[in-house]
Design a protein around this nucleic acid. Structure first.
Length: 454
RNA sequence: GGCGACGUGGCCGAGUGGUUCAGGCAAGGGCCUGCAAAGCCCUCUACCCGGGUUCGAUUCCCGGCGUCGCCUCCA
């Protein structure tokens, strides 16, 4: 069984299942107020890998990830651009999924939208007020963190030290600076919903509690998100569940952040985000997945053109071995069970993908060696192993998109083969130069000149 | 100030109390090739600093130094 680091305990421990063979995962999604940035790509890939690996391990996975479609940034943007907030949210949700598709990130089984759950959130806030753990002020309803046992679990700090470090502005209406809004009263012109506390909208931390409990039920197995969400977002989600006496997530997993060259994290607040879609325009999106897999999911990573290009070069080895096999009509066979088990050992150990990828590339070399020595049966087995490992982490291989060379190029290639057969190396090399100029990689294969787009 | 993470070879990045210390990229040499490419083989450069524990530490402990994260919206 997969063992994962749990932020609540600070230890790596097995994922425990409510019912055998089934696992529910809730991953905090995005606020659709802008185009996705490179950091979003990392987190999406990490969780896509978790999901695929769980399925690969034979579990039935229910994967839920929300879309926050009402919040201050969306409202601010709508105002700036003279549009409706809903229109802004729809535009960036589209952009989000288009980019995720490019990355090969599968869509969630459910993607609850905050605006569709406002009624349930109003109910929840009402219950909190009834229980006396939330209170109304001029601008909203706040949860009193002092009334929540164990507040600070995910921050791994107690209430006093959290309070000592609080940087938020002092608001006299709040009982503690750490108290957070579960309901925000509307200012004129803002999107709003009716509630016992007047027109307003739910606080951000409230949506995820309501939606995760509604879709996955109490005590769901795994709650994930970026490390920057551990506190206060996840802490506050948990606080609400605890305040209501409900069982919440059993296991908390947080992925490391993308950092820029100096080591500083990439984030909206720092204004140093890089556009994800444009990165994917200039490189094979699978290279980003491989880059993510080559470091541990909790480590910070730098993602620039250089790193992506490095990963893309490694990826070519993976594609090449399948292309070599295809050229001789060799199909993958059943995998080497021993290697698959070693792979599983790495993955089960807190999703240790770097050595798992090491194993994958060792298999690539093995397959190449076997192909060199024309040991096709053994090569087919290793190829099968590579396919199984790659599919476990969502790395599409052996299905490289090959753009067929155009007629003119094929004609030149035939001329080259003719010249080579005749021993006319000058003509053969001139033909190769011409093909390179046309943008092809030229290789001599078992069937003569082989071409592929550079 | 509080809490936490990290510091490995030219770069990325695992890992381990001790004979052979993943994997990828890059570099050099070789094999293969008409020449290449691809592939394969070989080589190079490590464990931030100072103490300690130990027969032996990159790995454990203590202390430095450095980088980063969270304590505010952020994946």
């Amino acid at each position: 069984m997969l063992r994962l680091h749990d932020t609540a305990t600070g230890a790596v421990r097995p994922l425990e299942l409510r019912s055998p063979g089934k696992v529910s995962v809730y991953v905090c999604g995005v606020t659709v107020s802008d185009v996705p940035h490179v950091g979003h790509g990392r987190f999406s890939l990490v969780w896509d890998v978790v999901r695929r690996y769980l399925e690969w391990s034979g579990l039935e996975v229910r994967y839920v990830s929300n879309i926050t479609d009402v919040d201050d940034k969306i409202i601010a943007r709508a105002e700036r651009e003279g549009r409706e907030p809903a229109e802004v949210a729809e535009e960036y949700e589209r952009a989000w999924y288009e980019t995720m598709d490019r990355l090969g990130v599968r869509r969630p089984d459910d993607d609850p939208h905050a605006t569709a759950y406002v009624d349930r959130m109003v109910e929840l806030v009402g219950e909190l007020v009834e229980r006396g753990v939330a209170y109304e002020t001029d601008d909203g309803v706040y949860l009193s963190v002092a009334d929540v046992p164990g507040y600070g679990l995910l921050a791994r700090q107690d209430l006093d030290s959290l309070r000592a470090g609080a940087r938020i502005e002092v608001d006299d209406a709040k009982r503690s600076p750490l108290d957070f809004a579960v309901w925000k009263k509307a200012k004129p012109g803002e999107p709003s919903w009716p509630s016992p506390w007047g027109e307003g909208r739910p606080g951000w931390h409230t949506e995820c509690v309501v939606m995760s409990l509604d879709l996955l039920g109490e005590g769901f197995e795994l709650h994930g998100g970026g490390l920057d969400l551990a506190f206060p977002h996840h802490e506050n989600e948990r606080a609400q569940a605890v305040a209501l006496g409900k069982r919440f997530a059993e296991h908390w997993v947080h992925n490391g952040l993308v950092v820029v060259a100096g080591g500083e994290k990439m984030g909206k607040s720092l204004g140093n985000t890089a556009d994800l879609a444009s990165l994917l325009r200039s490189h094979d999106p699978r290279a980003y997945r491989l880059l993510v897999l080559r470091s541990h999911y909790r480590s910070p990573i730098v993602v620039t053109e250089t790193e992506i290009a490095d990963a893309a070069a490694a990826l070519r080895r993976l594609d090449t071995v399948f292309r070599r096999a295809a050229e001789i009509g060799l199909a993958a066979a059943a995998p080497d069970a021993e290697v698959v088990e070693r792979f599983r050992g790495h993955m089960d150990n807190d999703l240790n993908t770097p050595p798992a990828m090491g194993l994958l590339f060792e298999q690539v070399r093995r397959a190449n060696t076997l192909l060199d020595s024309e040991d096709d049966d053994s090569a087919a087995t290793v190829l099968g192993t590579i396919g199984v490992l790659a599919s476990a982490v969502g790395l599409a291989v052996g299905q490289e998109e090959v753009e067929a060379p155009d007629e003119a190029a094929l004609a030149v290639a035939r001329q080259r083969d003719g010249a080579r057969a005749a021993g006319d190396w000058g003509a053969a090399d001139a033909a190769r130069d011409e093909l390179v100029r046309l943008g092809y990689v030229v290789e001599d294969g078992p069937t003569g000149t082989s071409l592929r787009r550079r």
